[in-house]
């Protein structure tokens, strides 16, 4: 009897292990991951590849905003995507520039990848748009399996990696900056 019970829960255990195999924050059916208890600021701080972004946020004085009510969706460039701007805008003398850059990467509300894909499905091939906190428009479109986001000035990045649904928004990693450098 005892052994039969053990075998009965084996499939459940297998499913549990599968859920822990590096895809824990992404559901099997492509649905958005479950929200964490962390704030946007904490999520970004915990992502090792976003240390530079965290520095820019802190330097610009926006840590409290991203730890606050929100919600916001942050299109978060990893360290490599920030490039030289990352270290420059972490400088005390560059707080304003950092704030301006960040505002172009933040939109209101919680925007999951599934939401974006659903909007693209509805919106056809012309792309769908969201307004940034810098009063600009980001246009989303499909590029094969990828979702690209393009700013009004032509800066383009792709959604990459795993999104994280925070307690006060969503962190959407992107592979480039959403403001075009001259």
């Amino acid at each position: 009897m005892h052994n039969r019970n053990a075998w009965a829960i084996a499939p459940l255990m297998a499913l549990s292990l599968a859920a822990c195999s590096g895809e824990a924050d992404k559901s099997a059916d492509g649905a958005p991951p479950a929200p964490t208890n962390q704030t946007l600021a904490e999520v970004i701080a915990d992502k090792g590849e976003m240390d530079t972004l965290e520095g820019v946020i802190r330097n610009a004085g926006l840590s409290d905003v991203l730890a606050g009510k929100g919600p916001y969706t942050v299109f978060a460039p990893a360290d490599a995507a920030l490039g030289a701007a990352g270290s420059d805008l972490s400088d005390e003398a560059m707080k304003a520039q950092g704030a301006a850059l960040l505002r172009a990467h933040i939109v209101p509300g919680a925007l999951t990848r599934a939401d974006i894909l659903a909007a693209l499905e509805r919106g056809g091939t012309g792309g769908v748009q969201m307004r940034t906190m810098a009063d600009g428009l980001l246009t989303f479109s499909r590029d094969g399996d990828a979702v690209t986001v393009t700013a009004a000035d032509g800066a383009t990045a792709r959604l990459t990696g795993d999104e994280t649904v925070a307690a006060n928004g969503v962190v959407q990693p992107v592979d480039g900056l959403l403001v075009k450098a001259e």
């Binding site: 919600p71 919680a110 925007l111 659903a118 909007a119 748009q129 969201m130 428009l137």
Partner: peptide, 12 residues
Amino acid sequence: MPAGYDVYNIPY
């Protein structure tokens, strides 16, 4: 509704 709200973005 102004441009820039094409995606469902309601707080969780």
